[in-house]
Design a protein around this nucleic acid. Structure first.
Lengths: 135, 135
DNA sequence: TTTAAATTATACTGGATTAGTATACTTATG
DNA sequence: CATAAGTATACTAATCCAGTATAATTTAAA
């Protein structure tokens, strides 16, 4: 049970942008070098963050990326969901037809895993980038 | 971020054995049918649970499997770890050399993810099979 | 002592996912 | 209009996942 490498890179890259302040743009090359992230991979990951309005992208010469929101309004969960989709924990939580006992109501394991998922998302929500900057 | 299907099957199969009571053996065929789990896959998964002493296996005619411990002493975490290994969250938590900033001490993301991992394992520990049976 | 019914050991397979790379294109600035 | 940035799309090698196959071993009972 693991987050993807893309999420990890995204955490570090967004934290880097947060350090620069909202709206201050930096190009991918620089972030890639400073944070030690493969550049093309970072570009691909950044596109997802831009599509979900966590960061803004600027094309053309002197283009780059900048944090789009107040760091207090961006959490680790926002980044994970943007990069790798929702936290699933178990396929029966997402595809009811995959639940071998169907009844979400009657399956005790299902209940427990639902609780686990909520615990994970709550914890990831606790970590805003404002908090990460402040530490 | 997901648990494997094998873990899910294992949860349901162990709960089934817990229902039978400690030491009461049932054969894989039966469990496979009742819980709707591919038999060969279940056999493979059960071997891991037997190796970690969560269940006992009995070979030969009238063989089968039985819970090896008090259900109060078996948790979802025990089963997950037996079946798919430790909860990792992030590769930098496991392989320090993969941490692009090295310093676990100085990396804020690292700290946060460590906290996330602990939260997950604590929650999975909360669910003993005694508790799951009681609900 | 043979037979049947069970687990064990090992290995294979197809498909999906992951991590990363490549190529061609578009956009903005000076 | 040249240059330096991001965008779109697609490719690839490696790994993991879910499930299957085959042969061997063990045990109980007839």
């Amino acid at each position: 049970m693991k987050l993807s490498q893309a999420s990890d890179y995204a955490f570090r890259a967004v934290l880097y942008l947060a350090k620069q302040g909202v709206g201050n743009r930096v190009d991918a090359q620089t972030i890639s070098e400073v944070e030690n992230i493969p550049k093309r991979f970072l570009l691909k990951t950044f596109r997802k963050l831009a599509q979900t309005d966590i960061i803004e992208s600027y094309r053309g010469k002197y283009g780059g990326y900048a944090l789009a929101k107040d760091p207090a309004d961006v959490t680790l969960l926002d980044v994970v969901e943007a990069v790798e989709g929702p936290i699933e924990v178990n396929r029966c939580l997402v595809e009811p037809e995959a639940c071998n006992k169907q009844g979400a109501d009657t399956c005790r394991i299902h209940h427990a895993l639902y609780d686990v998922r909520e615990t994970i998302t709550d914890k990831l929500k606790e970590y805003t980038f404002a908090k990460l900057l402040a530490e």
